[in-house]
Computed example of a mutant assay.
Amino acid sequence: MVTAVAYTNFRKDLKSYMRRVNDDADMLLVTNKDEHDNVVVMSASDYDSLMETLRVYQNQYLRNKVQRGMEQIREGAATQHDITKD
């Protein structure tokens, strides 16, 4: 669930809210009198993850590849690979 905070309160305690967003891996809705001025604050790592998910979803080849992999897992046809070599 996204926490909401008024812009004036956000501004007064910016550092604390930024720390909370990063520590809790949650988003923060900063509200203003005009709802068109509302913004969402999230950690940079969460943003990067969201953008990567969006890129995969928008790329039909990658999206199909993920879907095939998910089907293989559901069917028990997946194999485990060691990707780290000493």
Rank of each mutant, 00 (worst) to 15 (best):
M1A: 09
M1C: 07
V2W: 06
V2D: 03
V2Q: 07
A4N: 01
V5G: 01
A6S: 04
A6H: 04
A6F: 05
Y7A: 03
T8Q: 12
R11P: 00
R11I: 02
R11G: 00
R11W: 04
K12E: 06
D13C: 00
D13Q: 04
L14A: 08
K15T: 08
S16R: 02
Y17D: 01
M18W: 03
M18K: 03
R19D: 07
R19V: 09
R20P: 00
R20L: 02
V21N: 01
D24I: 00
D26C: 05
D26A: 12
M27I: 10
L28S: 02
N32W: 03
K33L: 09
K33T: 11
K33S: 13
K33G: 15
D34V: 11
E35M: 10
E35W: 10
E35I: 08
V39Q: 08
V39K: 08
V40W: 02
V40E: 07
V41Q: 02
V41H: 02
A44I: 13
S45W: 12
S45P: 01
D46P: 02
Y47P: 05
Y47Q: 08
S49C: 08
M51V: 12
M51K: 13
E52F: 11
E52M: 12
T53L: 15
L54R: 15
L54C: 13
R55Y: 06
V56Y: 04
V56A: 03
Y57I: 10
N59D: 14
Y61P: 01
L62K: 13
V66P: 00
Q67S: 14
Q67I: 15
G69V: 01
E71Y: 06
Q72I: 03
I73V: 14
R74N: 09
R74T: 06
E75K: 06
E75P: 00
E75Q: 09
G76V: 08
G76W: 09
A77Q: 15
A78N: 10
Q80H: 14
Q80Y: 15
H81K: 15
H81F: 15
D82Q: 12
T84D: 14
K85G: 08
D86P: 15
